[in-house]
Amino acid sequence: MKNNILNHNLIRLYILKVSHWFMLVMPIVVLFYKENGLNVSQVFILQSVYSLSIVLLEIPSGYFADALGRKNTIFIGAVLGFIGFAIYSISYGFWGFLMAEVVLGFGQSMISGADSALLYDSLVDAKQQDRYIKHEGRMTSIGNFAEASAGILGGLLAAVSIRYPYYGQTLVALLAVPAAFTLIEPKTEHNRLELGWKQIVDVVRFALVKNLRLRWNILLSSVVGASTLTMAWFVQPWLIRADTPVEAYGAIWTALNLLVGVAAMFAYRVELKLGRIRTTGVLILFLFLGFIMAGFIRSYWAMPFIVIFYLARGVATPILKDSINRIAPAPMRATILSVRNFIIRIIFSVWGPFYGWLTDRWSLTVALTTAGFIFIILSILTFIVLFKVERED
């Protein structure tokens, strides 16, 4: 019976992942913004607002998932995701896009953390928690394969009209609603948290103050997550600088996300071969090289380094999430994962508009190399402290 519940939830979590990552709009989103009169600074401002919208509800939504159930918060997030893209599809300027980003941010915050927690609890319920990295890797792979497939279709739709991908995206977001509604809450042995702001503060204090291993695992995962999010928004300006034909955007976006999906699928094997500490160190180096080489090389000779960056991104997500899940107590797992996502969005919200300003005021090279050095400094500092804490524990 418990295996049936696990399989039932896995199917719906796959549907939710596909719905969330089948992004018809991503290959042409910067072109769409330019078509509607926005500059690079405004693009990063919109994404910063999206991140801040997530931040406002990120930790409370994770706590609601722990207190009220993962399924309920995921369902609310799916509904808000549909509404957000519906607003986008009928908007034609900065303020309409801003409203859509706020709604999408709220929706994402309701799902973020709750989905991974529900997956982990479903595995615990079926006594298969040791397979979390494998399943999380598959979830990441499915998401990136979906995004890759959407890149081709999105490019074709954009060739007809730059707005068609947004109409299609609204329909895709609608698919998540029935999938979320039919999830089954796992009957794990832990008790749900009580509702209250004091309890939320207690969980955050536990994650970032009391438990040193958890704190530094969260911070390292957040720095890496923010760096990959930043690069995702640099790729299209880089393609524009390289005079890439519009019809090639979908194919390139597809290829990059296929690489992430393949890497995520084999992340657990990489960790088994190299070990967690060594794997993390290699990932940090590859991500740094991606920023620096994409910044200095204006031609397609930089593409191999962007490829390496995306491969590292695929391996990093399931491994770093698993590190947190192994330490996080079951009753507060969704809240703790939301703390991680909260910090990712805070980092991006602070630095994103600055990178956009550097691009408009100076150059894409300056922005990319600055992002790379900020990342390497933050990641090395957190990595060193984490290594020290892990050895002393």
Score class of each variant (00 low, 15 high):
Ala312Gln: 03
Tyr268Ile: 13
Ala242Ser: 13
Leu219His: 08
Lys273Pro: 07
Ala242Gln: 08
Ala255Gly: 06
Gly295Lys: 05
Val315Lys: 06
Gly275Pro: 04
Ala263Gly: 08
Asn211Met: 12
Arg298Tyr: 12
Met303Gly: 09
Ile284Val: 14
Asn325Phe: 02
Arg278Asp: 13
Asn257Ser: 00
Lys273Arg: 14
Pro304His: 09
Ile319Met: 11
Ala255Lys: 01
Arg213Ala: 07
Ser221Met: 14
Ala226Met: 15
Arg276Lys: 05
Arg313Gly: 03
Tyr268Phe: 14
Leu289Ser: 06
Glu247Pro: 01
Leu274Thr: 10
Ala263Ile: 00
Leu274Trp: 15
Arg213Gly: 13
Trp253Cys: 03
Arg213His: 12
Thr244Met: 10
Lys210Val: 09
Met265His: 13
Gly275Ser: 05
Pro245Asn: 09
Phe291Asp: 02
Arg276Gln: 11
Leu208Asn: 09
Leu283Ile: 15
Phe305His: 02
Asn211Val: 09
Ala251Met: 12
Thr279His: 02
Trp301Thr: 06
Thr254Gln: 01
Arg298His: 12
Phe266Ile: 14
Ser221Gly: 09
Ala232Gln: 07
Val209Met: 05
Asn211Cys: 08
Gly314Tyr: 02
Arg313Leu: 09
Ile292Ser: 04
Ile292Asp: 01
Tyr310Val: 09
Leu219Arg: 05
Ser222Phe: 10
Ala302Cys: 01
